[in-house]
């Protein structure tokens, strides 16, 4: 059972990771002068879009999403609307946090918001896919020892890795090297993406080597 789950997770993560690479390479054929530094925002949107689409598809196909009690259309619609709302809220929240960290308030607000969108699609969107728009479940998963399934653990790890990646990505900004990737928000978004990729790799490995973690679920 566990091995099967881990295998499924590995393949899902592989698909998500490859979607990021595809999103980095594909625009080369469609956009003129595309480069990660030069047209950073395009790259950023491309990555967050593809990650969102692939995430939703994969989790829908795997059927990980929490079981819905009712199967009526209206219930599904309201869930979708709530999810969208949560996503937007999380974008705003990330934006606010980034501004609190010292990003300029007005100038380059678009860049800051784009970073917030990327972070949301790397973290919140996966939560929405796995847990649904339920605050209670989110709080449970992100409390200590709150994971109840391998997917919860994976969620914890990838989210933490993305956020830490963005956090670490801010460090090179004050250096006076004048490199193209020191421009706001390139280092942070690259950091978040690399963190996410690392999380995708670490999560199955962690679960594989720590089988006891799930046995301790509270309640």
């Amino acid at each position: 059972m566990r091995d099967l789950e881990i295998k499924g997770m590995v393949s899902a993560h592989a698909i998500i990771a490859s979607s990021i690479f595809v999103a980095t390479v594909m625009p080369l054929f469609f956009v003129d002068n595309f480069s990660i530094y030069g047209t950073h925002l395009t790259w950023l949107y491309s990555v967050s879009g593809s990650v969102s689409v692939v995430n939703i598809t994969v989790f829908w196909l795997l059927g990980i999403s929490p079981p819905t009690k009712k199967h009526t259309l209206s219930y599904k619609v309201s869930r979708a609307v709530r999810s969208c709302l949560y996503f937007i809220l999380s974008c705003l929240l990330f934006h606010a946090v980034v501004v609190l960290y010292g990003a300029p308030l007005l100038e380059s607000a678009l860049e800051t918001f784009s970073l917030a969108v990327l972070l949301s699609s790397l973290t919140t969107l996966r939560c929405l896919c796995v847990l649904g728009p339920s605050v209670q479940a989110w709080i449970r998963v992100f409390s200590r020892e709150g994971a109840m399934s391998v997917w919860d653990t994976s969620l914890q790890i990838t989210t933490a890795c993305s956020v830490i990646g963005a956090w670490l990505g801010a460090f090179p900004i004050p250096l006076d090297w004048d490199r193209p990737w020191q421009v706001w928000p390139i280092s942070c978004s690259l950091g978040a993406t690399f963190g996410f990729l690392t999380g995708l790799v670490i999560a199955p490995a962690w679960i594989h080597w720590h089988p006891e973690v799930l046995g301790r679920s509270p309640g």
């Binding site: 946090v97 609190l100 960290y101 010292g102 956090w167 801010a170 900004i173 004050p174 250096l175 006076d176």
Partner: peptide, 22 residues
Amino acid sequence: GSSSFIEEEHQTWYFLLNTLCL
């Protein structure tokens, strides 16, 4: 160890302080 980080040490502390608050 880095001259830039010494010049911009305030950024380090602000950053750490924010993270601490979070």
